[in-house]
Design a protein around this nucleic acid. Structure first.
Lengths: 217, 217
DNA sequence: GTTTGCCAACCAACTGGTTGGTTGGTTACG
DNA sequence: CGTAACCAACCAACCAGTTGGTTGGCAAAC
């Protein structure tokens, strides 16, 4: 991370990076914007919309608070922008369900364990926008999941109907649940010796359940 | 709900209940405490620990803010007390897994759909106490889940080992997941006609998955 | 090639409103 | 009559968003 600004603006800069922090550093609005988005992602994942502090976000980005309002307009709008970003990255990283659905579940399970940020952001978002209304970017997200349902139906060689939809919910749930309430998972598994091993057995259980679920019978 | 206090204490009382709000109302510390706990439950479920407002809690309880500190000491301590309460009620209402595990999943699924408060509180709690540490009342809660693992093992006529533990996690996950990110569930199901019917089909899917999961093979 | 003038990017300092928690006094009741 | 429950008023800290001013960079004018 590079930090820009003049020497006398002490409040917003990490002085350990002072060699980067010199007068004459080129201005770069898009870099500022990106730094803000990255800092905001960490802050929102850690504290949620209401708990996030714009001062902390600005400080972490090495930028003045006011830039948030110049670029995004409000804390809430910044949060929405972060969500768009994160969801795009997420779909790019995980792809659509295909051939081996148990492997798909295993992949998603691993992803959420190694990178809990996305799930935390989704949970904050779900809690923030209560039950009644819908989320921002509703239409876009609806289409995204319709595509996933279609991909799952293709993988099963079945129609993209309610059954495929409920199955998609179940698949995602199996993979994501242990990381959703990690303390619950820990509480249940902690009585058994090596935690790493228990986690691997949980992963196997989820994949086996997936295999049985998609098997015809 | 009854509201007590003197006539001049306008700020903290619902005047529509003025006939209850007369001088000479008997003091009842334990009732005050219970009112505070009930109001706090609603407030915390809606807004989380950080987002909850002690003024709102006191107002809803028809009691002065200061009573919160007299009874519980701090907002955070009040939250912990609410969690203890809610978890006790929850276990009393749902019981342990027994004979028909698919029915158990169906029961939990219905419970969370009809009463999203518990899950919301658990999510706020999970997000609030990050990944690192453990929750308050760790030992008590650990024993509680050990009992559940044991009950599940009994129902399966199997040992209470890691396998039973991972299966318990999976069962709870299947039942609770759709209500955890309800907007996601809605987003996936909204394309299909009657939403009530889709929800019923989802329920059936979860129960069938449970049946297949516990079947030996 | 250099000066000039303009604007977007940037910042420090400020503000009005909010909030968890406290305090000093009042009242019910055993 | 003493004590515990209760309350209104208060306070210091905090915080999202604003403001007025500064500066880097670029393009037009020379």
């Amino acid at each position: 991370m590079t930090v820009r600004g003049t020497l006398q603006t002490v409040g917003c800069r990490d002085l350990s990076l002072a060699f980067d922090t010199v007068n004459g550093m080129p201005r770069d609005p898009s870099a500022t914007r990106a730094e803000l988005l990255a800092a905001a992602r960490d802050e929102f994942a850690a504290h949620g919309v209401g708990g996030a502090r714009v001062a902390r976000i600005a400080e972490r980005a090495g930028v003045n608070k006011e830039r948030i309002y110049g670029h995004f307009g409000s804390k809430e709008a910044l949060f929405e922008e972060v969500m768009v970003d994160v969801l795009h990255e997420h779909t790019a990283a995980l792809g659509l369900p295909s051939g081996d659905l148990a492997a798909y579940v295993g992949r998603i399970y691993d992803f959420h364990r190694e990178n809990p940020q996305l799930l935390r952001l989704l949970m904050w978002e779900a809690l923030h926008y209560g039950d009644q209304g819908s989320l921002p970017r509703h239409e876009e997200r609806s289409r995204h999941y319709a595509r996933k349902v279609q991909a799952l139906a293709d993988a099963l060689d079945a129609p993209a109907d309610v059954h495929a939809a409920t199955m998609l919910i179940t698949l995602i749930g199996l993979a994501a649940w242990p990381s959703t309430l990690p303390q619950l998972t820990g509480l249940i598994l902690e009585r058994f010796d090596e935690p790493g091993k228990a986690s691997a057995q949980l992963r196997e259980q989820l994949m086996e359940t997936t295999r049985r679920m998609v098997g015809d019978r």
